[in-house]
Each structure stands twice: as structure tokens, then as C-alpha cells.
Amino acid sequence: MKIKEITLRQLMMRMKSPFSTSFGSFQNKEFILLEAKDENGHIGWGESVAFTTPWYTEETMKTNWHMLEDFIIPVLLNNEIEHPDQVSEKLSFIRKNNMAKSTIEGAYWDLYSQEKGISLANALGGNKTKIEVGISIGIQKSVHELLNVIDGYLAEGYKRMKVKIKPGWDVEVIREIRKHFPNVPLMADANSAYTLNDIELLKQLDEYQLMMIEQPLAADDFIDHAILQKAISTPICLDESIHSYEDTRKAIELGSGKIMNIKIGRVGGLTEAKKIHDLCEQRQIPVWCGGMLEAGIGRAHNIALTTLSNFVLPGDTAGSSRYWDEDIIEPEVMVEKGYIAVSDKPGIGYEPNRETIRKYTVLEKNYT
């Protein structure tokens, strides 16, 4: 593969409703869409999942654009790549900036699978024809409103509920959910809102048979997570802590958690995500695919990754209509009875809607 032309677009799409976590709330989603054309005229697509502020990781949409334009694209444009795995090797001189790297690596994987005439899922080694999905629910204005939201998503068939928690919105909220929905698969996502000083509070969650508590402590607290995991019976799932295969290996060795959330952008692309998946499968650590409020391109990559065998827990890849009045792909991602059908078409399996993309584009730049 030799990419001859790359187009970066900054899009801004408004979500149907605000999304709130322990870090704050927002409704407008700005992101980068990357279009790559190879020497044979094939087009591959990638999507940056970085937010506009560095609350999730140190990366932002603007830093991703800078890294792509000034460092990443100059290295890869017009240079031969035999396999997408080589992309991360060629970019290894750049420290971190995983979301920027993932943006272009996703386009290479799309191109590669198109040229092989197979789906992206098959190119990655996946063999599922459908994937099981859950839903991620932000912090609501009231517990009553949260219960109504959960009830609505259960009616749509979603297989598990993930609710955001933070100090002051945690044990009592989970207690009320369990009172109304005693058997629903339920997990709590803390987004690093707690410290070891909160062990006694977090122990109270053991009573409610949660599937997991996601990232309760700071992103760099492997040791503290291990201490907390020994103190509670609820499985800890690591999210923000995991940026690479090496992070995963160390977390497993330390006993920092019993479940891993794999996000393509956070770990630097599909190649690294697959390595993490394989390691966790060897060590009998279940994994699931987290979401970053992606539009259709990023959502398509998540679906393909989730077809790998050790993705045994429902992920966050909800249907397009969960977030958008209209998505940028055709057909839009659909959820039926808690499952998404996996496309067997070559590449990502969805066709970008150029009219919709143009509608939401606020900045565009071409590189040859």
C-alpha cells in the first residue's frame, strides 16, 4: 500500500443530549476525520477520538491535527507499507500521541482489508457475525431521570448498563438502580474520581453484584488499584490506565484489575489493541470495547475489533441513533435486540456519506 493523498477534516456534530461524567458535561462533539487515497484509487477512513479538552488523556483534537500534519503524515505519505502492523513501527519514534497515530492507522487497516477483498473484522482475525452491545449512560439530573433512561434502553434490548459515578453520586444511586432493576447486568464507571481514601465507600458497592467498577482511581495508580482490588470483591476494570501492551502486562502482573477495557484510540490503533486482546486471552482476563462517543467511522472500527474471540463482555458501541440525529455513514449502525450485525463487505463495511460529512465539516485540508 502506498497512500498518495490524505484529507483531514474537522467536523462538529451535536449529540442528541449532553453527556456528563465526573469531569464535566458537553454536547457538541468536534473530531477529525481522515480520508486516505492509495495509488490504486482505494479510499480508507480513520477517525480521531480525541476530545477538545485534555480531560480524558493529554491529547486533544488540536494536538492530533498538529501531530498528523507536522509529523505523522510526512512520514507515511507516498511511502510503501506492506501491512498495517508496520504503521506503528514507523511511528515508534513519536512518544505517546496514541489517538493521533490511531487516526491514520485505522485508514491503513481499512485500505488493507479492501485490497484483500475481506472485511476489516476478518482482516483482524475476528469471526463473529454479530456483537453484543451495552450502553453508557452519563450522569443525569436526578435518580428518577436515570431510572427512566435505563428503562428505555432495556426496552431497546441493550445487554448491560454502564452508569457514570462520582463522589456524591455513587452508592445511593447504585442502590436505587438495584432496587428497581435487580437483575440487569450493571457496571459503574468512575473515570478516576476516587482515591484509596475512599476504600470503605467503594466496599459498599460489593453488595450490589456489579459486573465491574471501571477506573476508580487515577490513571497512573497501578499499585493503588492492586491494593483496592484486594480490598473489594467487585472486579476492577482498567480504562485510562491502559495505553499499551506493556501497560496491560504490568497491570496483570500487579493484580491491578480483573477486566480490561480496550479503546482503539487510547492504545494507538488496531494493531496494539489486538496485541492487548491476545495477551488478555492468554492470561484469562476478559475484555470489552469501550466507546469514545464516536461517529460512524470510529464506530465501524470498534465493531470490527469486537469480533475477536476474547471480547466476551458487551461493549459501549451503541447504535448511531443513540447519539446522533444523523450519522456520517450508510447504513447507520443499528442495534437489534442488543446486537449489532457485523458487515461482511470489504473494509469497514459502511459507506461514508459525503453529503453529511460536508454538512458538518468546519475545516478541511489536503496533503499530497
Rank of each mutant, 00 (worst) to 15 (best):
G338P: 09
A190C: 09
Q229H: 06
P235C: 08
G349R: 09
G290R: 04
F26I: 07
P54W: 02
T52W: 01
R354H: 11
I259P: 00
R14P: 00
I213Q: 08
N261Q: 02
L120H: 08
K4W: 00
A231E: 09
A50Y: 13
A341F: 08
Y208P: 13
L91C: 08
Q114P: 14
F23V: 12
H180I: 00
Q282P: 00
D221W: 07
V335A: 09
F26A: 09
R354P: 01
D198H: 15
D221F: 11
T306N: 06
E272V: 14
G291V: 07
V173L: 14
S92G: 07
N127Q: 10
S241N: 11
A219L: 08
E5Y: 11
I264M: 03
R95Q: 13
K101D: 00
S320L: 11
E246Y: 10
E105C: 11
S256A: 10
S92I: 02
G315H: 05
Y245I: 09
K179I: 05
V184R: 06
I264T: 06
Y56T: 08
Y360D: 04
L313R: 01
A341P: 01
R160Y: 06
P286K: 04
A107K: 11
E47V: 15
G255H: 02
N40H: 13
D198S: 13
S20K: 14
V133K: 00
E214A: 11
R299Q: 13
F26G: 04
E115K: 14
D38V: 10
V287Y: 01
L305V: 15
Q204C: 10
V49W: 02
D70P: 02
N122Y: 06
T52R: 03
W65N: 00
L196A: 11
A341Q: 14
A121W: 10
V335Q: 05
R95G: 14
H301G: 06
D224W: 09
S256G: 07
I276D: 00
E82I: 08
Q10H: 14
Y350N: 11
E69V: 15
A123D: 03
P54K: 03
L111Y: 12
V333C: 05
V184L: 05
K96G: 02
C289M: 03
T195I: 09
H83P: 07
S88A: 13
K359Q: 09
N148I: 03
S256K: 03
G41F: 10
E207C: 07
A341R: 13
K141S: 15
R175V: 11
T52M: 04
A155I: 03
G157K: 01
E80M: 09
K274F: 01
H225I: 11
S92E: 11
K96P: 00
P84E: 02
I94K: 03
M13G: 13
I177Q: 08
T356A: 12
I81V: 14
K2I: 06
V49Y: 00
P346N: 06
K359Y: 07
E35W: 04
